[in-house]
Structure formats: structure tokens, C-alpha cells
Amino acid sequence: MSAETAALLRERLAALAPQSLAIEDESHLHAGHAGAKEGGHYKITIVAAAFAGQNTVKRHRLIHAAVGDLMRGRIHALSIRAFSPDEV
């Protein structure tokens, strides 16, 4: 995993005050894929109170708003599993 990209993801997602956050680099699974040259493929699992009462689309929008410009360079694809504390 690009330690720098993971650190940036953690820094940006801190705005959601996660109770837990796991970041996995899945770029190796996409070797040869056109996007593999333009940014990594990451999977996050995040638990945050900010997701309580929010549907999946709203949760993903919160995450994309937090990571912002990382999605236009460092990250080509982001797989998201987002939960509120009462769902885990």
C-alpha cells in the first residue's frame, strides 16, 4: 500500500470521526487494468456515528466529499463499506 496515500485517506476521513477505519490496497488485483497506471484501487471499511440514519448513497457521498481531490489522481477506485456504530 502506498503509505502516503493511506495516510492521506486517514487524515481526510478523520473529519467523519470514525470509530474504526481499515484501509486495504487492492491495486495488485487490478494489474494490467488501464486505471492501475493512474491511481490505486483501495477498499475501506469505516464505522462512524455520522452514518446513522443515512442510506448507502449518502454515506458514500460523505466519504467522497472527505477524500475529495484524492479521487482525481492518487485513487482510481474506492470500494466502500460504511456502517454506523449500531450496525456492527
Rank of each mutant, 00 (worst) to 15 (best):
L29T: 13
H28M: 00
Q54D: 03
A34D: 05
H76P: 10
R81M: 07
F51D: 12
I75Y: 02
A7K: 11
D86S: 12
G32E: 04
A31Q: 07
V88F: 13
L13F: 06
E24L: 12
H28E: 05
L8T: 07
R74I: 01
R10M: 03
E87N: 08
G40V: 11
G39I: 04
H41T: 09
M71G: 06
S84W: 12
G73H: 10
E26H: 13
M1L: 03
P18S: 03
H60I: 10
L29Q: 14
A82H: 05
A49L: 08
L13V: 12
A6P: 01
T5K: 07
R12C: 06
H28Q: 10
T45M: 14
L8M: 09
A65V: 02
K43D: 01
A36H: 13
L70K: 03
D25T: 15
N55D: 15
A15H: 07
S2W: 06
G68K: 12
V88D: 15
S84H: 14
S79L: 09
E4R: 11
V57N: 03
G40M: 02
L8D: 09
L21F: 05
A36Q: 15
E24S: 15
I75F: 00
A50S: 11
N55L: 02
R81C: 12
A49F: 01
E24C: 13
D25Q: 12
K37Y: 03
K58N: 13
L78V: 09
R72L: 08
L29D: 06
V67I: 15
L13H: 06
A6T: 10
H41N: 14
L8R: 13
A82T: 06
G68L: 01
A36V: 13
A17Q: 12
E38R: 10
A3R: 15
R12A: 12
A7V: 09
K43L: 03
I44W: 00
L70A: 02
G39H: 03
H64M: 11
A77W: 03
H60N: 14
R10Q: 10
A82I: 04
K58H: 11
D25I: 15
P18F: 05
L21H: 07
R74W: 00
E87T: 07
F83G: 02
L78F: 03
H41F: 13
V47E: 01
A66D: 01
R61Q: 12
T45R: 14
S20N: 13
L21R: 08
E24K: 14
H64K: 07
R61T: 02
F51L: 08
K37L: 13
L70N: 01
H30L: 04
K58G: 01
A49M: 05
E87F: 00
E4Q: 08
V47M: 01
E26R: 14
Y42S: 10
G68C: 00
G40Q: 11
M1Q: 09
A52R: 14
G39F: 00
E24G: 10
T5L: 08
L21Y: 05
T45H: 14
I63E: 13
L70S: 02
A22W: 00
E24I: 11
G32Y: 05
R10P: 01
R12P: 02
A49G: 12
Q19C: 02
A52L: 01
I80C: 05
A6D: 06
L62M: 15
I75Q: 00
L62T: 04
A31V: 06
D86F: 08
